[in-house]
Amino acid sequence: MKIAVLSGKGGTGKTLVSVNLAAAAKISTYIDCDVEEPNGHLFFKPKDIIEEEISVNIPKVDGNLCSGCRRCVEFCKFNALAYIKDKLIVFEDICHFCGGCILLCPEKALTEKEKVVGRVQKGTSEQVTVYTGILNPGEPSGIPIIKKLLDENEHERDKTVFIDCPPGSACIVMESIKDADYCILVAEPTLFGVHNLNMVYELVKLFNKPFGVVLNKCLDGENPSEKFCLEKNIQILSRIPFDNELGTLNSNAEIAVRKSKRYRMIFYFLLEAVKKEVHHEATSDS
């Protein structure tokens, strides 16, 4: 069972929810796909870390073979190639490693060259297996790292996997939720929060994923995100209070489930609610 946790912007509580759910599930896998600034490891403090570098293939030009036809320059959507004074220039930092230029080159002047874009760490925290994807600063895309993180877990299908997604609803989030069985959308109780919730709501609908919402930072009074859920008939899975105790635990990089009885219960109930939903989906599909 793969559960993806996402939100339309950063700081909403994706890491709070996914880390605590993984801890509440006890034997589970936590995958930090927020490769631009992974922070789940700050809470789990994983041990016995194994690290692997992740590379992509970018084009390398053989100037003796290049005929100057410029097909590659015209093809590249990211403008990573320029042809100046009978010489092809490759801008490695701009290249999104689609490989199109290499395929197109009629002279076979372009070949693949490996470039390290980041790394993947695997460690353990109690009985939780913790994966962290780390993209090197300045790299244009974290997708190769996310692919690696999610492929790694294919052989552990029996375990409950929690995917901590990057913020937003762009390609990198689509890659993260692609194989998820269920999506948890985390929302803040503001109008801005509703706007961001709507972005991920539209994404999960587009991907035809079963989903529910966790309302985070709940205060007394009106909650625009709750209103949005009621209007759209979206399942509300849990309400997490805007609370000093939780804030303190979080800012000390503690996992609330492992420190507080109250939060152990809140996340345990959330986990049960999600399991029930996934089970329900599985039976209604068959």
Partner: peptide, 18 residues
């Protein structure tokens, strides 16, 4: 034509100038 590029607009504009 580079003005609306998703990325690398400067490279493409410079190519056109050259």
């Amino acid at each position: 034509g580079a003005a609306a590029s998703t990325g690398g607009a400067g490279i493409r504009a410079a190519q056109m100038i050259a």
